[in-house]
Design a protein around this nucleic acid. Sequence first.
RNA 1: GUGGCUGUGGCCUAAAUGGUUAAGGCUCCUGACUGUGACUCAGGCAACUGUGGGUUCAAGUCCCACCAGUCACCCCA
Length: 420
Amino acid sequence: MVKFTRPTGTQDILPEEQPYWDHVLACVAAVARDYGFARIDIPIFETTEVFARGVGAGTDIVDKEMYSFKDKGGNDITLRPEFTAGVMRAYIENGMHVLPKPIKLYSTGPVFRYERPQAGRYRQLYQFNAEIIGEQNPLADLEIMLIAWDIYAKLEFANLSFQLNTTGCPVCRPGYIEHLRAHYRTHYSQICDDCKLRLDKNPLRVLDCKREQCQPVIAAAPKISDYVCDDCATHFADLRTYLDDLGKPYTINHRLVRGLDYYTKTVFEVWAEGIGAQSAVCGGGRYDGLIELLGGAPTPGVGFAAGIERAVLLLKAQNIPVPLPPSPPVFIAYLGDAARRHAVRLLVHLHQAGFGAQIAMSGSLKSQLRQADKRGARLALLIGEDEIAQGGVTLRDMASGEQESVPLGNLVDAIQQRLV
RNA sequence: GUGGCUGUGGCCUAAAUGGUUAAGGCUCCUGACUGUGACUCAGGCAACUGUGGGUUCAAGUCCCACCAGUCACCCCA
């Protein structure tokens, strides 16, 4: 027999892991609700072109990390590598521009990227994502940053910090890139081979090269914030003023750039300690050109995405307790075939009365009670010949071991009392 | 895609310089005078030692390849 294994970079989220996931998703939903974000769910796959145009040809995600294929109808399909492009497609397609602006949306679910897996990084990964569409005021940037922050605060993460930068816009970015290239050309012999390629393909990325030899060149490189146009500079200044007013700590990181083409003006990350090489737990920014690029009316937008695996990893690393789901409090055990039939009727009866209840499937009374214990039942109901003859059940308190006979008519009340 | 490290039952771990039927713990199941859990005790299920080659009289132990995991790079959440 062949042994089947999960594909590389995927994971089974086992029952014992679920409380962590539930906790993260519950916090996301709660904070999103408090900020007035409505949930939107979009397909897990889209026409490839949505991502090719939206995320941008030339980005690593599009060029080498997408799960793309032709379906049986010959359509070019891609498993979503991120949320934003698909959400904007949905915004346009469903005429959501008629909704009162700004439009605030959030999503959670799996996305897919063909990468080499490592800690907190998978090929099928889960993200939560929030977007504000139709507002160019930096207040929208602020609110996106705040909702991201508050989710992690609600999760009780320690050592959080904002990293902030501006990447300019189509008006001013090309000019900056020329200055950057000019700087690098004068130091061409000092930089690594990767950066030589990046300079050509995705020049902003040279700024976050981690190689030792490139650090002096990066340190001396022109800063984009010195080259942005008045519009971008004002936007950036206003955002910083908001953050200052709130006393929110942030670090201007001139080397912070994003790997996706659609970002304009604001880019930010939330950092946290404790998950190895990936210090960023969340990243996002403004994408004022994206909706137009995808065929909609020119509309500004700003958003962020965060990996749930990393959040779960951090919950564990910081030993943060998560709520455990309660197990059904009642367990029904029985002795003999006749009693089994009574037990089944009782099970249905208790479910209808709104109690969580489980029934033994087989085994001696001894092993049935063992099951009750293992499953965390607080009360066991015992049914045998004696109970049938008396028209009742024996109710056993698992913690104290006390037992009493209860007539069927009083059972619901008796259970109710015991569970208070 | 690149490099380092690792790979023994579901989980954790043991098998001296290569040498008899791969050992123990946890979990799970069963039982301890037969209608009763948790503790204890006894027993049981379960591994062709990641896969495939090679060296050797003999390999879980050595060599090679592949696969997987992990750490870092790349990239990103």
